[in-house]
Design a binder for these strands. Structure first.
Lengths: 257, 257
DNA sequence: AGGGAAGTCCGTACGCCGTACGAAGAGCTT
DNA sequence: AAGCTCTTCGTACGGCGTACGGACTTCCCT
């Protein structure tokens, strides 16, 4: 059952993503378009978080009954696929003024970061499968294109792009976690530290975690009120790009192909 | 309500994590220990995936009623915190034979990778807050200690460790996604490509995504049956470490403090 | 020794969730 | 006009986290 069903589902999802669903002629006109439903889902998720992505809530947002949603997307998973492809469409390609590959990659990574910060739910919706919508493919295409003309093989380009994308995703996840501590528990950073003072004080005194204590203290005083997450990301990104640069340089000297 | 409640919950969670819950003397002896419950949760999650982590399922696994679980952990979130701290305890610290920081960091990153591959649910359980259990703190402590003695400030150590950890988490996430395509849909890679042949063929012919097509073709032939995820990770990790190395080198020459 | 406090365990129930199913009605095709 | 197809919706099922209160066990204090 599973293989056949999910196959059919998936095919339908692809049709939806690419707008290939034949405009059924017989029945009543749909009240909405798939695009409208998807946009409402994105809006809801942006405003209320990943937990708000439910068929009932989205249906309510667009003024449909829960079950009527299923004529627009065959399942919640497919709806999320559509939402993901929609937001990936917000990525901008690096312009021609960015001639150097490193500038292009930095631009792209920062676009990715901004996307994840705008739509944090994209990191939480559970990894089902690559949606393979038009926007995702276009994004992947420009990504792979950014390393063209440097004498790298397709495999190398694949690996380097994955490297950068993986780093951005990891950093986004860390940033999201830090946000959630405050958002979910309703506890600010300071309250939190105060709450754990007794325990942490004990540990500090016992000297169990010397490195942690040292680094923690320095970090705490250094970051007063700054956007720690962003600073971490921008620092890390430069290091990653340094690594990429070293590889490309070595690759250029060591052999052409 | 939320602030007070979650505060109390959190405090209790910390007590559980550190085994500080006073051994209540009055009531009947608990049938199980918290450790046993947590271990059962981890086993269940490992074997059946993140969806199997439910109070009812864990209770069933240990032979308790669902509500009895709440005497061991005050909520599902806290239970997961305990599970997370438990598995972080599997991380091994780099031995003294790894004298160079790069060897230590590589070792540590690979431990992290292995941990994520053993317990993929740790990437999916939703980021609530850092658990701050003893194992997590110990892990963080050894992590920060690995860059000691190189003349780096605490802030720099923090940034560099975050960089590596973020990359590993991103790569794990990517690997997980790739696994899930097959695990959830029950469709192998080949079947999948066959299914989308018509659409993809169209796109190739139309020339919309030239870079994607080129890279995809090379990758497809190059990776025949290999562990693509692992290869990606190991390649990416070396590039990241190259970036870290470049930074440390530059830092050593440019100024002591 | 006995009463009460504290703690474990469990059954029931509430409000969420995704979605299977089938009925009702709308609008095009013939 | 008839019939097919498609949209819309109400109901219902099995799952979830967990609030609540009762039954019972064990120990402390008097």
């Amino acid at each position: 059952m599973s293989s056949e069903d999910s196959g059919a589902d998936h095919r339908r999802s692809i049709e939806l993503l690419w707008g290939r669903a034949e405009t059924g002629r017989r029945g009543p006109k749909p009240r909405l378009s798939v695009t409208e439903v998807v946009a409402a889902g994105v809006k809801l998720a942006d405003e209320e978080g990943v937990a708000a992505i439910s068929m009932r809530r989205v249906a309510e947002a667009v003024g449909l009954s829960p079950m009527a949603l299923y004529t627009y997307a065959p399942s919640k998973i497919e709806l999320i696929d559509l939402m993901l492809d929609a937001i990936w469409g917000e990525m901008q390609a690096p312009g021609p003024e960015l001639a150097h590959w490193r500038d292009r990659m930095e631009f792209f990574a920062k676009q990715h970061w901004a996307l994840g910060r705008r739509h944090p739910w994209m990191l939480q919706v559970g990894t089902h499968r690559p949606p393979l919508g038009p926007n995702v493919l276009a994004m992947a295409n420009t990504a792979f294109g950014m390393l063209d003309g440097l004498g790298l093989s397709g495999v190398e380009i694949d690996q380097l792009m994955h490297l950068v994308a993986d780093y951005v995703r990891g950093a986004l996840r860390t940033a999201l976690e830090a946000d959630d501590v405050e958002r979910i528990t309703g506890i600010t950073d300071e309250q939190w530290w105060q709450m754990h003072e007794p325990l942490l004080g004990d540990l500090i005194d016992r000297g169990d975690f010397p490195h942690l204590v040292r680094v923690g203290a320095e970090v705490k005083t250094a970051y007063r009120g700054q956007n720690v997450q962003l600073a971490h990301f921008e620092f890390g990104l430069q290091r990653v790009l340094d690594g990429v640069e070293a590889y490309i340089a070595k690759r250029a000297t060591s052999g052409d192909r």
